[in-house]
Amino acid sequence: MSDRKVTSRRISRNVAIAVAVVVGAFFVVLAVSKPRTDTDISTPLLGQPAPEVVSDLVGGGEFDLSRRKGSWVVLNFFNSTCVPCINEHPELVVFDKEQSTLPDGAELVTIVNDDTDDAVAAFFEKNGGGWPKVRDPDGTIAVSFGVARVPETWVIDPAGFVRVRYAGEVTSNELTARINGMKATP
């Protein structure tokens, strides 16, 4: 009986110490958290056949990704109000111009993400870029690729397989170098 009294006499102190240990661990965990590094992010679709992209275009016309087999296709998910998209746009214009001079140049295609046709058309008229802009009103294409945020840029090889996924802004040099690298090592 006296033993139990002694331990129960210390209950408050022991419980307080236990709680202190737990809270202290929480603090330590927060303190040693490592910052996250974002590189080109992975996707389970890497090395897989690209999902279907069949839709109409802003300004009329049809688009079907599978009919582009035989050439490299660069898909750029875009929204006219997203700041990084606006930032990277000149790079895409340069990239498109360069690739169109090559015999086996990559085709740049924009996939509109949560935007109106009018806004997109107005943007391209003002900033240039004559490549196809695919409509995706329900977001089906974005979901099938797993794209939630824009901009994202995907590179599809001539066989229709997904090779690279960029999340965030891209530069023309990076794209060109990457595609050239992949062309060199089939």
Partner: peptide, 10 residues
């Protein structure tokens, strides 16, 4: 959010 709308549609 728009992304959620899109996934709900899918």
């Amino acid at each position: 959010a728009p992304a959620a709308e899109a996934i709900r549609n899918e």
